[in-house]
Design a protein around this nucleic acid. Structure first.
Lengths: 89, 89
DNA sequence: CATCTATTTAGACTTTTTTCTAAATAGATG
DNA sequence: CATCTATTTAGAAAAAAGTCTAAATAGATG
């Protein structure tokens, strides 16, 4: 959604770890959860935040929900940060 | 300080705006505050968070405290995000 | 179709974050 | 040196975020 949502989503370490996991490709919610010491409900909560921030896609196959990294929003943040770094008056 | 602190610091819109202001160069705490509808105490709180995240430097001159952007930490985040984008297996 | 499996939703609880007012500090200046 | 100006600190209050358990949903399968 908004720029603020994206940064907010990135501010939590569990969510950043999830994104790192997804670097290697699609993963189901359960598979993601197995990497953390948290309930499925909590993982679901984090996935929803990542999804609302457009940082991940989801695709449903059978009774699994697969999550995948969406790099296009990451690119936008990269741009913001790059502009912060460069162009000093 | 830590990577998490940096992302946390960036997750607040007021703090991101402060960083944008500092793109144009050093600015005193009061000057920064004048751009926001917040008390000086609240601005001071945000500046402390940015400082703890090493996103800004401070220098004291007379009874003013000047803040300045520290881009080196931004570079580290840029790297993290770039690695997230590239290197897909 | 009864039920098993994967995931999400609802609601409660705790912790963290953001903000304020009031007081404290620290340097500058009449 | 009394006090004014700039900023920070302390403490309180409110809002937001993260987590859990229990229940709901939704598809798969015997």
């Amino acid at each position: 959604m908004s720029f603020a949502d994206t940064f907010k989503a990135l501010s939590d370490s569990a969510r950043r770890e999830i994104l790192q996991l997804l670097k290697d490709g699609k993963m189901s919610a359960g598979e993601i959860g197995s990497h953390f010491d948290m309930t499925g409900a909590t993982i679901s909560y984090h996935l929803k935040i990542l999804k609302n921030a457009d940082l991940v896609w989801e695709t449903k196959v059978k009774n699994y929900v697969y999550y995948e990294l969406n790099t296009s929003v990451v690119e936008e943040i990269l741009l913001w940060l790059t502009e912060l770094t460069g162009e000093k008056k």
